[in-house]
Design a binder for these strands. Structure first.
Lengths: 136, 136
DNA sequence: TTTCAAATGCAAACTATTTGCATTTATAGA
DNA sequence: TCTATAAATGCAAATAGTTTGCATTTGAAA
């Protein structure tokens, strides 16, 4: 597996590289502040606006997806390859759904609604096994 | 089809009734401000905070779903019966997907991840037929 | 090495949403 | 029907996430 590349035409800065590395490190989408805190943990001071500006650029370039989860009021950002999630209502844990069930329905949707489908996002809410045990 | 009821234990105010009526009127999820403007249009002055407070209550009571669409930074609110959407990237038109393809995969997800599934949300992005024609 | 547009950091601005509080209103009970 | 009272409303101020302006720094092309 090779590391993500900064898009053509954009300078390679240590902040930019660090943001991408953090996004690769986290398995699920995170808040801008999570990136800020993780980098601070690693001894790197970076401005939140730099983080937002880069996430915005990466989103426009298609590398990053920005999404709001149910009952959350701040955006999460994640690498665009991973975008179907199971979210635990109790602990907010997020688990990636590997085999996306959606593909099989694409054709059907195209036929019924006449849309050209560019992408999709699925979130499923429930209680994860850990919380289920704790709640017993 | 009967009209939505204000949940048990909550007073019937004209603001509350109006908000529910507007939610019934709109076919797709709307911003708080859309409700505000629609009511103003109808000659009713209502405070935005009243709208937010009621939407919050209705959400907690399960009548309303709050969701953020791709590339939008403000919440939309809609009746909880309708929650799978096709969103046009061009004109932002939102179309409800009637036959939710998800149910068939519920069992599979429960088995693989051990989650108790409480709900889900699907958004599909693309270009609607109208915009497709205009772009030609 | 020099040059300069692009990127960064900081502080201020912005915007959707929430909250405190005084006032109004729905409704249960007299 | 009238009254008492908790709930709901409206307004203005507060909040929080995000964006922006601008001075400074930095990557990379020449």
């Amino acid at each position: 597996m090779e590391s993500l590349k900064i898009p053509e035409g954009y300078k390679i800065t240590k902040q930019r590289k660090a943001i991408l590395e953090v996004l690769e490190y986290f398995e699920t989408p995170v808040h801008a502040e999570d990136i800020f805190l993780k980098l601070k943990d690693l001894g790197m001071d970076i401005s939140l606006s730099t983080i937002y500006r880069n996430l915005d650029m990466l989103q426009k370039q298609g590398l990053v997806v920005k999404a709001y989860m149910l009952n959350e009021d701040k955006a999460r950002f994640g690498l665009s390859s991973k975008k179907n999630y199971l979210v635990c209502q109790e602990c907010k844990k997020i688990v990636i759904i590997d085999n996306c069930p959606f593909e099989k329905f694409k054709e059907e949707l195209i036929e019924v609604h006449g849309f050209d489908i560019l992408g999709h996002s699925i979130e499923v809410y429930g209680i994860c096994p850990d919380c289920k045990n704790k709640l017993k």
